[in-house]
């Protein structure tokens, strides 16, 4: 049977993580359909139709999907479930909010945050902040899955020629209402998709000092991340947080500055290909996972690095 992927988009474009989820879906079955639910999102639908490996794009264009509230999204997924053996979404805050609601309505035990597809029933996922890797086999007849995007190489955004089918909207639940969004504005690459990430921790010391991290990131064309301690201290907004309960990143290069390396932080970044740690405390656990550790005062080392690159 076919596999359905729930597209994540912002009404302007498809979020890159969707391409990683499609890659995971294709490991289950080659007949992959993509659901684009939104309001007035013609550009996104056009983009969706070009993605490599998508046989069909289902579109549901109605005001109740404008803000993608879980109470409205879940019934739409439930209505489509009959035609699919598996339904996948990214393990982003969007997917995490919507998918368990749909799973419960379908009486299915969701499988969260998978990092590998073993077979159509068996999947691998991290538990305990990635300190153990569990392989689980589902006995549900249908699977609802969220996917850790960084664990799968994305499919090509071009080269496909999907058919497009419009589906019926399910109406507004009336349970919840969007009020506002305050999104971080940035020209830097998106944290979970960036090739290079520069992260700051409590050692950076203040919101003002984060300009050092920004300067280095901009020199490298990198995204900026942070430890929970830096976010809790108010140096940067919450969406910068890398870790067990924040974002999971797997860039080619991760530079940890003034980060001690609590296991909750390591859970979010130890999949990076190369890790650099700059910290004045040579006992900091971050050095145990770093390929290149530099024991130094970050206030001297970071400007020097930025200058010499």
């Amino acid at each position: 049977m076919s596999v359905l992927v729930l597209a994540e988009h912002d009404h302007k474009s498809i979020k890159p993580v969707t391409l990683n989820v499609i890659a995971a879906a294709r490991k289950i079955d080659s007949d992959v359909h993509l659901l684009v639910a939104g309001n007035d999102c013609g550009g996104v639908i056009e983009e969706a139709g070009k993605i490599h490996g998508i046989a069909k794009v289902l579109t549901c264009d109605a005001p109740e999907y404008q803000k993608r509230l879980a109470e409205n999204m879940a019934p739409l997924i439930v209505a489509l479930a009959d035609g699919y053996s598996h339904i996948l979404a990214p393990a982003s805050t969007f997917g995490k909010n919507v998918m368990p609601r749909a799973a419960a309505l379908l009486d299915i035990q969701q499988i969260s945050d998978i990092i590998a597809v073993e077979d159509a029933d068996t999947f691998t996922r991290p538990v305990y902040a990635g300190n153990a890797i569990a392989t689980v086999k589902s006995s549900d007849t249908k699977k609802i899955i969220t996917v850790r995007g960084t664990a799968f190489d994305p499919v090509n955004a071009e080269g496909g020629a999907a058919t497009v089918e419009s589906i019926e909207a399910k109406g507004d639940s009336g349970l919840s209402k969007f009020v506002k969004q305050e999104l971080s504005e940035s020209d830097r690459p998106e944290l979970t998709a960036a090739k290079i990430v520069v992260s700051g921790g409590r050692g950076v010391g203040s919101e003002d000092n984060f300009v050092l991290i920004e300067a280095l990131a901009d020199k490298l064309g990198a995204a900026i991340g942070a430890s929970r301690a830096a976010v809790d201290a108010g140096y940067v907004p919450n969406d910068y947080q890398v870790g067990q309960t924040g974002k999971v990143v797997a860039p080619d290069l991760y530079i940890a500055v003034g980060i001690s390396g609590a296991i909750q932080h390591l859970a979010g970044m130890k999949g990076a290909k190369t890790i650099v740690a700059i910290n004045k405390d040579e006992e900091a656990p971050i050095f145990n996972v770093a390929d290149y550790g530099l024991v130094a005062d970050l206030f001297e080392a970071v400007p020097e690095l930025t200058e010499k690159l």
Binding site: I111, P126, S138, I275
Partner: peptide, 29 residues
């Protein structure tokens, strides 16, 4: 509904490498 097939340790990272200064860091990277 889910049966645990196996639970494994994550792949260990071979960390612990050190560099002496910024010049060496840039050279290695």
């Amino acid at each position: 509904r889910l049966s645990v097939v196996s639970v494994k340790e994550p792949e260990e990272r071979k960390g612990g490498g050190k560099v002496a200064d910024i010049d060496e860091l840039i050279e290695k990277l």
